[in-house]
């Protein structure tokens, strides 16, 4: 495993920890989209169907368990925790996330590397992950006072994808037959969706003001 891939995984892990820390310590999920979190839980379930059948490494298995466990606990907190759920911006988080699921499933059935159940679910998870951030970005745009942790969480998620792209470039040049167009294109689409956010993130950082996306 190369350093870019490890950095990408760690950034992803830290993003989840930041979010859980926010929820757990200040008992608030204000500014966080439940729609996006539910999509991520679905992404991990459909991607990690191979968790008990294909052993890759201990690292791989543990990380999969962490991502599955944390994504479900975040959804649980936001839906059922008696204090946390009160801070959920339900009226603002109105993105029809179900409309993202079906097109991704159809696309996975049409464009995949192998027509097997596990492979289609894996491909579906890639397509879904690419667009799962959309409800969160919409909510961010609508929220007037976004707290710092929410902004850091989104930034870390975007950074994780950007690092994965660098990892793919590195692997393409160092490993023979390393060619994964579906993964690359969905990862690229996902990173592009963060483009706007990154632009305003750096502006707010440069000018030392709170980030607020223009409506």
């Amino acid at each position: 495993m190369n350093i870019l891939r490890l950095a990408g995984d760690m950034t992803h892990l830290i993003s989840v920890i930041v979010l859980l820390l926010k929820i757990h310590s200040i008992k608030s999920c204000a500014g966080i989209s439940l729609k996006t979190q539910e999509l991520y839980a679905l992404v991990f379930v459909s991607r990690y169907l191979n968790i008990f059948t294909d052993f890759i490494s201990l690292y791989n298995t543990i990380m999969k368990l962490i991502f599955l466990g944390t994504s479900f606990s975040i959804v649980w907190y936001m839906r059922y925790h008696k204090i946390v759920r009160r801070s959920y911006d339900k009226d603002q988080d109105t993105f029809r996330h179900y409309f993202l699921v079906l097109p991704c499933l159809i696309l996975a059935l049409l464009i995949n590397e192998r027509f097997t159940f596990k492979e289609i679910m894996w491909t579906f998870s890639l397509y879904l992950e690419a667009v799962a951030i959309l409800p969160q970005l919409v909510l961010l745009q609508r929220t007037k006072n976004t707290d710092n942790l929410t902004v850091q969480y989104i930034f870390l998620l975007g950074a994780y994808r950007a690092l994965y792209i660098l990892n793919w470039i590195y692997r393409y040049f160092t490993e023979p037959d390393y060619l994964h167009w579906i993964t690359w294109i969905s990862g690229l689409v996902q990173t592009i969706l963060y483009g706007d956010f990154f632009y305003y993130y750096f502006l707010s950082w440069k000018n030392n003001v709170k980030l607020q996306l223009p409506a």
Binding site: N50, I56, N60, F67, E119
Partner: peptide, 10 residues
């Protein structure tokens, strides 16, 4: 049997 692809990334 080349039905399964190995996915080593998360």
């Amino acid at each position: 049997e080349d039905d399964e692809l190995s996915h080593d990334e998360l």
